[in-house]
Design a protein around this nucleic acid. Structure first.
Lengths: 126, 126
DNA sequence: TATTGACTTGGAGTTTACTTAAAGTGATAT
DNA sequence: ATATCACTTTAAGTAAACTCCAAGTCAATA
């Protein structure tokens, strides 16, 4: 698969894919005899994983660390597990924050609805 | 309240509070005769709101727009409601993304646990 | 054969959201 | 009185994560 195809498949620009490769997030991407990237299954899976984590806001530094642990080999399994657990904690905290903010948004939207329907005349921001 | 006190109360640095004021996110902060900020209830509520939204990842541009709508007056109620609804949609989408990523993290962590407990010997990343 | 188009590289530029620095003011502590 | 401390301003600097640009290569098509 060419870089354009992979980019389309995962909704990542070729520039970003090259950037990820440059910083070591994606390694060992196969090339044609002319030096053009020809992504294989393994690379695609890696990209899909990174895309998923990045979408949720996991930082590149963390992902770099994780990838380097994988590349170091079996001895890093415990450390990898710890890293993923830490990220899970962060995402759970983020989830909680978002829920709180959603409650607040719902409350404010309701006030605006009441104003629109004439149920409420007075209101003070915020 | 001084800027340092407000900063401590909401866990925002004084520099960030001045920055928010500079870009128009927080306006009409009262001052002492010497020009020192003396935050009142209204300013504090605004800060608390902004902090909540920023924690959830709502962008400063969006908050600026919202604040300017508030300052324009009652005629913008409908537009404000729309803006908040858009942000709610974004947060719901983010929530969904995070949940998917959490599922994936849980799956991977489980694999690492199985490896640690000897239940599983073979594994291929990712 | 000439041009088009997708790819390559290295490096510079952009965006968002702060963060820090430099220079100065004014009230309080020694 | 002098030094300390928290505050003030304007402006420049930083970090993270891309994003774009210039110059060049190669295969395919007009």
């Amino acid at each position: 698969m060419t870089i354009a195809e992979v980019g389309k498949k995962y909704d990542i620009t070729p520039d970003t894919l090259r950037y990820y490769e440059r910083i070591g997030l994606i390694s060992d991407v196969p090339r044609t005899k002319n030096g053009i990237r020809d992504y294989d299954e393994k690379s695609c899976k890696r990209i899909e994983f990174i895309k998923c984590m990045r979408n949720a806001g996991v930082e590149i530094d963390i992902l770099s660390k994780y990838i380097s642990l994988i590349e170091t080999g079996k001895s890093t399994v415990e450390e990898r597990k710890k890293l993923l657990e830490d990220q899970r904690e962060k995402l759970l905290a983020k989830q909680k924050t978002i829920n709180e903010t959603l409650d607040r948004l719902n409350y404010k939207i309701k006030i605006y609805e009441d104003i629109a329907s004439g149920k409420r005349k007075d209101f003070t921001e915020d």
